[in-house]
Structures are given as structure tokens and as C-alpha cells.
Design a protein around this nucleic acid. Structure first.
Lengths: 315, 315
DNA sequence: CAAATAATATAGCATAATGCTATGTTAATT
DNA sequence: AATTAACATAGCATTATGCTATATTATTTG
């Protein structure tokens, strides 16, 4: 003898409308439909829900109480409806993004801000990691998409990859650094300064080694390591240390914090890209996030390249 | 493209049970039934509700949100269920009782206390009136049952009537009254005292007139009128005034407040009874109230009569 | 890695619920 | 008494829901 929540909803609609005909109109149903549902309910409860023989339909005490539960049900159902349509349109939901620390802090977080400005109902859960862990997390389903510098050839077949920025590193220093104002530099000039490094397993650490190798510096002094980007920038800005950073990260910083030295260094073979596991099974919000990212970077990528040409390569 | 609240309920049951099979067991349904409902919902939403190809069934984010609405619906439906069964068993609801002021205050309210002690979820709304208004209120449906002294022959055909107490009036005074200790009285002895009267339209006012007429007092002094029972008792207790009251009212008062004088007076032709309009359409709570009343009075009626025989009629 | 296990998905069918229109009744109003 | 507007009922078509039997499949076990 179970009550169907739909019937309670209908009951509340009738009570609130003050009659069956109006209630039927409100619900987009026919009047006989409601009439029968009320009659069935009355039969099953063994109690009348409306005073018989009164024309402005008058709900029984029991009916009033059931109707108030019906209102709760109506609200919850509507809420579910809204959630579903918001979700389906990609305007609600959440995205779990992971990525390498420097890029996440230095570039992606700013883009995420723009994304959240446009889609305020979407929640972003951010976490950090390097390539292998990221791919593992994607496969385990603990993150939805990753931002990571990768060599396109190294991306496993089951993982989707979309390039968003070319890999372009620079040597960066604080804007008050003695080398910061020089228009051209010789390699010898930089060898006297200490270096800030990333953790040993990170791509940027490898990049730093490669750069210094290529310009003949095999023995270098590390003055600071282990900090996240904000610490690194503070240390750069307040000391004479140098470091290797993606130009895009330097580019996204506010003026007068850090600058890129006008020294050509090798491109890393990696390109920054977005990774995902199975685009088809992603929720609309997650697809929307990936779409937004690749679209925004289409513009940023050009702007960054252009600026870098002007500032460092001076072509 | 409306969502059925029942489906949300089912969804929440599946999520909470951690799988369809257990969810089906919890709901008392078959597993294929739930499986199909989930599949239909997914088809209609165009979004999957459980991660595909994972065996400990893992709800999608959308699913989790819909399930939480489903929980609201489940709770409200259960609540409605409880309300209905409480109501149907007569353990919940309300009764609107009206009656003549002296009886309501002097007798019925005490019985109502006992009723509420036994059925604490039942609400009683009390109001006051005399016969004609009471019957009118019954017909208008603004009260459910009335307690009123009536001549059984005067009850309209469409109104139900159940006798609960015979009409037995006494002359009452405060327990400190000079006449209170006398074992027998002559009529002349009472003629010197002033009288407390009910409103002119009330049965007890008529009874008072009849009593005094019958013992040859045509001209009597009214010292107080218009108060409800508590006022009347206070005035009786603190003055030498007399009044006519139903013996049942005197009987129900605490000792040492008012007493009945040992003078036989005429029985009013009215009998105290309960009135109702259409017993069939009454809710169980209201029927229960009427049943309780008539049952309680079956006992009280005898006790009152017995006491009255001892105290006044001394047979 | 194959077999076993337990869960979910699908198929097929019977029944119940729901929808509608047409029409009958009835309470309130004119 | 006639009119009106609302509710109730009947009849029929469609959809939803229930079940059992069975196929698939993810996970666990040997």
C-alpha cells in the first residue's frame, strides 16, 4: 500500500490551484486524469481527500498534510530537473584538473579564472602531478583532464592529447636583476649567478640541466629549490638568482616582477597539452572545460610567441 | 521531458545501497526493473548515471546530485505514508468541538484532558455556542462535534445525537455558605440569597427561571451574571450568592469549592449529548473522539447519578 | 589465465497505470 | 428554473511497470 510521490505532487498542485481543472491546467494534464488519481488515492487510503459535495473544492485535513509533502516532492523534482538541464548544457558540474605545478600556477590558473567567470556554476578541483602520475590518474578516473608538457609521440594510444602551447623556455630573473636591463648578453655573464631549481623529477629540472649543458655550464650553484611558483617568483625578485621557466609563465606574470633574459636557449621537445581519457564519456561540463582551454590557448599561444620573438629572439 | 519523482527515489536507493541488486532488494522490486529504469533515465537525459564498465557501481556526478534529490523525495513520501497511517488509525488529526460554555468548562474539558493523555498527537480545537448556532456550525462544517443539552425530540433528522448525561440540576453555593452545612432545607431559607445567572439565551438561564418558578419564587435578585465557569465558581465561593448548575459540573469540581444544596428541584427535560453531522464522512480521529467521549460518559454518568442520590435525594 | 562468481543488461510477456475524449452529474449562480 | 462551471465516469489506446528467464560482463579465485 505504497503512495506514489507523483500522486502527492499532483495533490499539492490541486490544493494550490484551488481545484482540479486549474490544477490540471497547471500540470499540463487533463482534468479527468487528476480526478481519477484522486479517486484512486482516496480508495486506497480509505479516507476522503476533499469534502464531498462542496464546489469550491475543499481539502480534508489529511489532504492538506499530504499536499504539504507533495510540495516538498514537487520542489525536489523541479530541482532535479534544473540540475539535469544545467548539467547537460555544461553549465553545472565539476572538473578535476591536474597538471605540472609551474604551468598550473603560472598559466592555467589564470585561464581557469576566466572559465569560472564565464561559467560560475562550474566547480574546478585542481591538483598537481607529473606526466606518469597524471596519466595514471586519468586511467584511474581520479582526474578528468590534465595539463602537462609532453612529447606528442610519448602520449599513450588510449589517452587523448591536444597541444595548447609550444615549449619555449627562457632564463628568468627578478626585474631588478643586474642583467635585466642589458639588451644583449654573453653567456659568460650569466655563469656567476646562482640558480633556482625545480624538483629533480620535473621536466623543468631536466630543461635547466639541458640548457646549462648546452651553453657549457656543467657546474652550477643551486641557491633555492622546492618552492612553488609564488615562492620562486619572490625569491627571484628579491635575489640575484636565475632560473629556467617557460616563457608563457613569465609572460603571464604582472609587470615588474620577473623578466626573461635575452638569451636564446634550446626549445624543449615537449609541448604543453591537455590530456584526457575518454572524451565520449566525459560530462558536458568537462568537455566544455577542455573546449574552453584549447580555444583560449589558440589565442594565447600566438600572443606568447609574438612577444617572445620581440623580447628574446629579436628577429 | 519530465523526470518522475519515483525514479529519483529509486536512483537514491541504488546509490545508497551501492548497487542495483541490493537496491532492488531494499525497494522490494526486481533487479531488472531498476536496471531498465536507470537505462531509460540515462536515455532521456542523454547522460550516463553510472560509470560504465565498473563493477562496484559508481555513480556519476549528475547521478549523485539527482540521488540527493531522490533522498528528499523518499523522505517526504515516507512522511506522507506515516501521516496517512497515523491519520487512518485515528492517532493523528484534529477535532473541532463546540458546546455550551458551562458544560465545556465544567465537564468536557476534563474529559478532553484524558483524551489527549491517551492520544497525544490529536489536536482539539474548542469553541462555544448554544444549540441553534451549534447545529448551524455542524451543517456548515466549521465544527466536527458538539456537546449540548438537548431534548432528544428536538434534534433535527440530519444531525446525529448520542446521550451522554441525564439532565440533573442542583442549586449550588460556595462551600462556606451558611446553607452549606445544613442536612435539610426548607425552600423559604433560600429565598433571601441573591442569584448568579447565565446569559439570557442559555439553557441554564431558562432552567434557573423554571426552578424558581416551581418553588414559588417569582421575584429574585441577580447579583452577578456573564462570567464563565471559573468566574462563577469564584463568585460563588466568595459570596453568599446561589445559582443553578448541572450536578455533573458541581461533581467535577475539586472539593471545598462549591457544593450542591440538598434540595430537590425539577429535572430539565434536556439531556446532555453529543451532536454530529455525518458520521460516515468523519475522519478517524473525530470518530475516535466521539467514541471516547460516549464511552467515558457511560461510566461517569452512573457515578454522577449515584453521588447525586446520596447527596441530594437521599433515597 | 581459465574458471567461478556475482552483478548488470536484455528479452519477452502480462498487467497496471496513465493518457485522452466524450459525456454524465452536480453545486453554485443568475 | 435555467445556466454555468466544475467534477465524475466510461471507454479506449498507449505507456510504464512488473516479473522470469537468460545473456553479458567485471571481478575474484584457483
Amino acid at each position: 500500500m505504497l503512495i506514489d510521490p507523483k500522486h502527492l505532487h499532483i495533490l499539492s498542485a490541486i490544493v494550490d490551484a484551488g481545484g482540479m481543472s486549474q490544477g490540471a491546467r497547471d500540470l499540463g494534464k487533463s482534468q479527468p486524469s487528476l480526478s481519477r488519481i484522486v479517486a484512486d488515492l482516496e480508495a486506497r487510503l480509505g479516507e476522503s481527500l476533499f469534502e464531498k459535495g462542496r464546489r469550491p473544492l475543499q481539502p480534508t485535513e489529511l489532504c492538506t498534510r499530504l499536499a504539504s509533502e507533495g510540495r516538498v516532492i514537487a520542489r525536489a523534482t523541479q530541482q532535479a530537473q534544473d540540475i539535469a538541464s544545467q548539467f547537460i548544457s555544461g553549465h553545472a558540474g565539476s572538473v578535476r584538473v591536474a597538471g605540472t605545478p609551474i604551468f598550473m600556477d603560472g598559466v592555467i590558473s589564470t585561464i581557469i579564472a576566466g572559465f569560472q567567470d564565464e561559467f560560475p556554476e562550474l566547480r574546478v578541483d585542481q591538483s598537481y602531478g607529473y606526466a606518469e602520475e597524471l596519466i595514471e590518474a586519468l586511467r584511474a578516473g581520479t582526474v578528468d583532464t590534465c595539463v602537462c608538457p609532453m612529447e606528442p609521440g610519448d602520449v599513450p594510444d588510449d589517452i587523448g592529447f591536444q597541444r595548447i602551447l609550444k615549449g619555449r623556455n627562457v632564463i628568468a630573473c627578478g626585474s631588478a636583476h643586474p642583467l635585466a636591463r642589458k639588451k644583449s648578453l654573453r653567456l659568460e655573464e650569466i655563469s656567476e649567478f646562482p640558480w633556482i631549481t625545480q624538483p629533480a623529477g620535473s621536466p623543468l629540472y631536466q630543461d635547466l640541466r639541458d640548457v646549462l649543458d648546452s651553453i657549457g655550464i656543467s657546474d652550477f650553484k643551486v641557491s633555492y629549490s622546492g618552492g612553488t611558483l609564488s615562492s620562486i617568483i619572490n625569491v627571484l625578485a628579491g635575489s640575484k638568482a636565475l632560473t629556467v621557466l617557460p616563457f608563457s609563465v613569465v609572460y603571464m606574470q604582472p609587470k615588474n616582477t620577473i623578466v626573461a633574459l635575452p638569451i636564446r636557449i634550446e626549445h624543449p621537445k615537449r609541448e604543453l597539452g591537455m590530456l584526457w581519457n575518454d572524451m565520449e564519456s566525459q560530462s558536458p561540463a568537462k568537455r566544455r572545460f577542455i573546449r574552453y582551454m584549447t580555444k583560449r590557448f589558440a589565442g594565447i599561444s600566438q600572443a606568447v610567441a609574438e612577444r617572445q620573438r620581440q623580447e628574446i629572439w629579436r628577429e
